[in-house]
Design a protein around this nucleic acid. Structure first.
Lengths: 354, 354
DNA sequence: TTGTAAGCGTTATCAG
DNA sequence: CTGATAACGCTTACAA
């Protein structure tokens, strides 16, 4: 016989009554308050009764009085992109350990602003923002809210970032080292800092090597598989083709790979492709995607830790401590370029030489 | 000059004071209570002031008094599997429209029980359970909680399901129609109903066609890419190989495809592969995966609607109304089997005949 | 029509 | 060490 009304959740009052102490005492022992000095015997009894009754604290009530919801939001552009999902997952793990819930949300069929709005209504204690251009958000949406930005330097909020510039450089250097000079770039037209830096790093390394990239080989598409497909298709439509291409993320790269194979272009023999992120699928496609690995989960985990520390009152500098390193993962979509030549006829054509 | 303490959120009291009415009146007009009869002028003024002050209701407080948190949980085995992510996304869309937040969580590095525990602590109003064998969960974890199960018939809770039996049958019939008789199955050893039914449907159709499947060709692996890879690798290690294989989900199928291509087996010429789910990646790999499309987002959306209705006090029968239809999507990994013949040289050895 | 007042389940500050 | 008691911000009878 747990309690009177079997359908009502057990409260501290129920426990108090049953244990013969005041409700406040129950709260004292059950709320894990460090400076709560309760007699061992009392504490024991309260805990026993709580256990027996199946008491579970009501987070809503606790949150109301403590002025915190113990929930954080994570805003990303697209949860469908495994990279962002990993960021969320990484954050979720450390948040969960600290007793925080994570409310993830993407802005595919909404806007960052609307999302933030909803998160605020839920009194989230903080938000992690990744890939949606935090700087462009209405300022008041983020006031009186702890925020951490991922992959975006900010004067206003602390953040954590990967070395996106290096990512672009690594891709360029790899392609260059293989002997490629006819290079293309496929990436989104965006103000998202991470993407911009990947692009900048790529072009920087190209410039330093004295390699120019013609305008027609800079393709702007959404950072998705279909974007990559479209870009590659049009790139291949011209007689004058690049021998290597860097894609701003793996989704684009996989789309590009798909389009190339569909067009009968042999990868990497006729075309080398480098992606960025190193999502799991990168090593599932055939040939496996050469890419630049970015520690997504680690980004998410660190962002969460930063947020947690901030919510615990710690003041954290707006400048990110250091950039998380990225590394080139050489796989099957890159190789030395062949001598310039026409493309085969149908399908894979008849390769003349290696 | 919004209010006295610029760092404290605006409350109904602030609005009331500023509008010269009582706090209760503010609540009346702002809480969207239908049977709240407030003078038009008063309502107008309150709304203006609320707007001007930037008032946002505190969901915690509202939830506390209304006895609801306006949040639901979704428990799936693996958010990394795009299928489950779609279920979550589908649920999220309809939940958001109704003002509900969703707390997604997977059981990769946790257990369903632990997750439910955390969700209850947050006073979620209900949960959607998919792919984790709801029937095997400790009963008391789901008491006094509204629940909807996905892809799992239950005496206890209402649910929504796809026609998993048909999915398996469709796969078998397709392979059979192409002329395959030497068939294999790769799927998880699980008590998750959806998986079991896919398997059962497959074997049912096989039996009806008088086709037997030798024990060695029934491979049990985790429902992941690496599981599929492993299974296919060992399947190919034997001289006696199947000509067609049905994989319990697309992740397995993609792993199987990968392993086959890696082993130098040409798909679909030497081996046909059918997956299940039709995740986006299924049409990105080369060759594109033939699969059975399952309406993941629709499942999630309907589950959420069912849950919402339940939370609004509606009594909903435990038996699912009807199964959502699945359909075969013929793509590039299936074709007629070749006449039995040897395999390529290296690796798998030289098979003499089938 | 509007104001008063009683909670919702906690936490936290005080006296005892 | 423990028990009243006052919030937390809001909803909702009920009274004016």
């Amino acid at each position: 016989m747990p309690r009177s009304d079997p359908s009502r959740p057990v409260t501290t009052h129920d426990v108090a009554r049953r244990a013969g102490v005041s409700q406040a005492t129950v709260s004292l022992v059950l709320s894990g308050n460090p400076r709560a000095r309760v007699a061992a015997a009392t504490r024991e009894r309260v805990m026993e009764v709580a256990e027996a009754l199946g008491y579970r604290p009501n987070m809503l009530a606790r949150g109301l009085v403590r002025g915190r919801s113990y929930a954080i939001g994570v805003v990303v552009p697209d949860l469908t992109n495994p990279f962002f999902l990993d960021v969320v997952t990484g954050a979720q793990r450390v948040a969960a350990e600290a007793g925080y819930a994570v409310l993830p949300g993407d802005t595919r069929e909404s806007t960052p602003a609307r999302h933030l709005e909803a998160l605020r209504a839920r009194q989230v204690d903080g938000v992690i923002i990744d890939g949606v251009g935090a700087a462009t958000l209405p300022h008041d949406l983020l006031s009186d809210l702890k925020v951490v930005v991922v992959d975006e330097p900010s004067e206003r909020w602390p953040g954590i970032a990967s070395d996106a510039l290096a990512a672009g450089r690594l891709a360029a250097e790899h392609l260059l080292a293989l002997g490629h000079r006819r290079l293309a770039f496929i990436g989104p037209a965006t103000d998202v800092h991470g993407f911009r830096m990947r692009e900048r790093g790529f072009f920087q390394a190209l410039r330093e090597a004295g390699v120019a990239l013609p305008h027609e080989w800079l393709r702007r598409v959404p950072p998705s598989v279909s974007g990559g497909q479209r870009a590659m298709k049009s790139l291949l439509a011209s007689a004058d083709r690049p021998t290597g291409v860097f894609c701003a993320n793996d989704l684009i790269a996989m789309g590009a790979l798909k389009a190339a194979l569909t067009a009968g272009v042999t990868v990497p023999r006729d075309l080398s492709i480098v992606g960025c992120d190193d999502i799991e699928m990168a090593s599932v496609v055939t040939p496996e995607l050469t890419t630049v690995a970015v520690p997504a989960r680690e980004l998410g985990a660190r962002a969460a830790r930063l947020l947690l520390r901030q919510m615990n009152g710690e003041q954290i500098a707006a400048k990110p401590a250091r950039l998380l390193p990225v590394r080139l993962v050489k796989r099957g979509t890159t190789a030395e370029p062949r001598e310039p030549q026409g493309t085969g006829d149908r399908e894979q054509g008849t390769a003349v030489d290696g």
